[in-house]
Each structure stands twice: as structure tokens, then as C-alpha cells.
Design a protein around this nucleic acid. Sequence first.
DNA 1: CGAGGGTTTGAAGTGCATCAAATAGTGTGG
DNA 2: CCACACTATTTGATGCACTTCAAACCCTCG
Lengths: 236, 236
Amino acid sequence: MTKNNTLIALKSHELFAKLADEQLNLLHQHSVLAHHKKGYTLLIQDEPASSAYIILSGWVKLFRETINGEEYILDILTNGHLLGEGALFHNHKYPYGAEVIEDTTCISIPLSLLESMLKQSPQFSTNMLYFLAKQQSKSEKNREHLVIQNAPQRIGCFLLSLLPQSASDGALIHLPYDKSLLAVRLGIQRETLSRGFSMMQKESYITLHGATVTIPNIKKLSQYCCTACTNPYPCE
Amino acid sequence: MTKNNTLIALKSHELFAKLADEQLNLLHQHSVLAHHKKGYTLLIQDEPASSAYIILSGWVKLFRETINGEEYILDILTNGHLLGEGALFHNHKYPYGAEVIEDTTCISIPLSLLESMLKQSPQFSTNMLYFLAKQQSKSEKNREHLVIQNAPQRIGCFLLSLLPQSASDGALIHLPYDKSLLAVRLGIQRETLSRGFSMMQKESYITLHGATVTIPNIKKLSQYCCTACTNPYPCE
DNA sequence: CGAGGGTTTGAAGTGCATCAAATAGTGTGG
DNA sequence: CCACACTATTTGATGCACTTCAAACCCTCG
């Protein structure tokens, strides 16, 4: 949890892969490690932006406010995820708000530095291009899921996305945050989430105890969730 | 409709803005103008990719096939839109299929050329970054609409997106393609689209004759459609 | 005129939302 | 360690939006 970890975290992020040591050091020098408690507001939508953040631990939700005051959730992020970089291409304003939902450690990186690196480092430019392309494909997938999958399928798909690639049948999953938050994330009501879980238990796609889920047969679950989808399991 | 128009179309695309004449000429030399009839398959999903295309006229649908053979529509494109460029960041394979749905004129541009320009031209790199960022924001908006808006609201939102910025009350819109295709594009059934239209007529948000829509009061319609949304009208 | 696709209308079913209430789980102060 | 308050989650009952299935209508074009 020292300044040294910052360098390691930076190095291991795809956005900074293959960069010259010189540039990594520059990033390292200008980066600040910070801890934030649950409830802390990290980014304010449409406010002038100064930093991007890489999450080292904890959970952060990205959201936008609707005109009549409701909240729309774009994504919920954790270890290794980047946020706030969108401001680089959005008039230096954050395109979404961000709130800490589980105590979070993160690195803040000045956007001005990223901007100058974009101009000077072709490697970084390329990384950013691939990063944006990947994000877009993820966003398209999310949209597809909304159109194609019903509620329980979306839940199952989300569970599968929590599995490491190496997971085998019987794998344990600990839900990373509140079920009510998960419901919003999936675009359904808490009650629907609850009923979805219990239906999937009855059909023995999963077993559920509190916030712990086991998947006895990954193939069976993925067949239920992914058949209607354009991406076979594993989805991403 | 000569080779000269190709140059003009290239110059006016945001992706090629501010490029040196030298590069524009290179693009121009390697670009090919083509006409395709309705039904023509322009791109095949997951096939090795050779070209990107800019549409000059007509309509093209982008789609992906689900595992059980259904079709999911990503977008429907027309004048000025670019397609196929995603292959640059997707192992040189097209991330979607594309089919001509109204006779189309388009320019094909070799991906290899774009790729070398990405490496050599910082301006082009920057353009591409902004282009991808914009596409992503569009994709996020589409997703939001699916979560937040009901069917008639999505229909109204789509109609509003067809209006030029300069449009005033009473503006005429000619639906660009089949209502059944529009339904798929909006993620609803044809019947639901039809009922949505007739409801909006009854509430005098619009009037409808065949494929021609008039919007007597833009503000009224946008209040109905956009209040639940995080983006005020005009949406994009 | 008649065939065939596109579109609308009607009737019934389904999935999810909503509202209401019960239950389980968590943290606090005694 | 327990009692209490408070929140998260589940369960039940009902309603609405959209889908599905079926049939009619409408338009265009040979």
C-alpha cells in the first residue's frame, strides 16, 4: 500500500502497457494514492475534470442523473478499472458522476498528463485506441443483453462474468455488493432479482446462501443464459 | 457521382478532418466508389476484414447473429456514416455483419491504409480517438434509452433524432425504412410500434400518414420522451 | 384483378413492475 | 449477550406494458 504499489498498478494496466520506463516514471511521479470511504463522491457529472482514477480495491458506481432526478447506473467498477478518462474527449468534463459504494483505494492521475502523453507517445495513443474500442464493445454487449435476455438470464450472465476463466463446476461466488444495487445495475427491480435467484435455484442452475452463490454446472447455466446471445460463453 | 465526389466526401468526414493534403490524396487514390443493391451483403461477421466503408447514400443495417440463429440489430446507417472500421481493433475481423437495405452508394477504404495512417499521422490518431469516444457515448445513450424509456418514448426519441437541428414545429419526416425494421432497431415488436404510433397520434404528439410523420409541437414531444432521460433534447 | 408483402387491429398470455407486508439480517446501546 | 431499531431481502397479490398469435386490411406491382 506504499507508493511503490502505485508503480506496479500502473504498469499492469493495459492502458500503460509497453510504455517506456521514462513515461511510467513520469506517471508514477504525478500519481497520488488515495483512500475513500463508502459514500464519497469521486466525480461530479459535467463538472470540469482534473483527474482520472484507477481503482486498486473497493467498488465505485458510475451514474448519470435524469432530468426528473432519477439515477441511471452506467457501470459498477472495481480492481483495475479506470474511470474519469472520458473527460479527455468530452470537453474536459466528466460524462458521469461516480460514488464510492465500498471503501476504495485508488490512484489519481492528472488528465493533463494523460493528454500530453497522448500527443507525445504513439504507443500510449495506440493503447488508448484499443482501450476505447474495448469499452465500446463492452457497452454494445450490455445493450444487446438488455434487448435479448430476460431478467433471470441477465442475472445468470452477470454471475458467469464474476467467474475467473479458470473456474470449474462448483465454483463459489461472493456477490460483490448489495442485491438492491445489483438489481439497478442489471436494469431490474430488487423483487425481480430476488425472484430470479429463487427460480434459478429451483431449476438448480445455482444455489444461494445470503450473498454466496455456487454454480454446480457452468455449462448448464451458460446454456440457459447465452443461447439467445450473439456471444458464446465466456462473454468477455 | 464521379471520382471527384469521393474526395469531397472523404474531406468532409470527421475522421479525416484537418489531414494534410498529401494524406487525403493517398486516401483518395486507394478509395473505390461502389453501388450496391438492396439485399447485398457488405460485411460478414467475424470474417477477415479488408475495407471500411463510408456511406454516401442509401441505408445499411449492422447486425450480429445469436447462437440460435436470430438477428440482433446494432444500428442502421446512412449518409456520412462509417462502418467496418471496428475490425482495426478486433483482430482484423468485422465485429458485425452489414446488409444493404436500400440501394447504397459507398466508398471503400482499405483497412491497411487506415492502419498505416494510424501509425504515421498523429492527427489521424487523434481523430480516431475522438471518433471512438463519440461512438461509445452514442452506444451508452442507446443503452440508457432501453432501460429508462418505454416503447412510445423510444419511438418519439427516434423521430426527434431524425429532425435537423434547424427544424421547427410542423416539420415533416419521412420514415427512412420499413416500420418492421424500425421496430427491430428500437428493440420492440412491429405491433408495438404500430400501437405506439397510434397512441401518439391520439395524444397529438404526432400525425402519421403512411411513412410520413409530422411533429406539430417539438417541445411537447420532447417533454414526453426526454423527461425520463439523462440527456435533454436535442439528444445528440 | 389478384398475389404477396407490409401494416394494423383484436384477443389472450407473459414478464416484470408496483404496492404491501412479512421476514431475515445487522448494528447499537444497555 | 440480549433487546431494539433499522435496513436489506423475500414473498404475495395485483396491474400494466409488451409480446404472441390470429386475422383483417391495405398497398403495390405484375
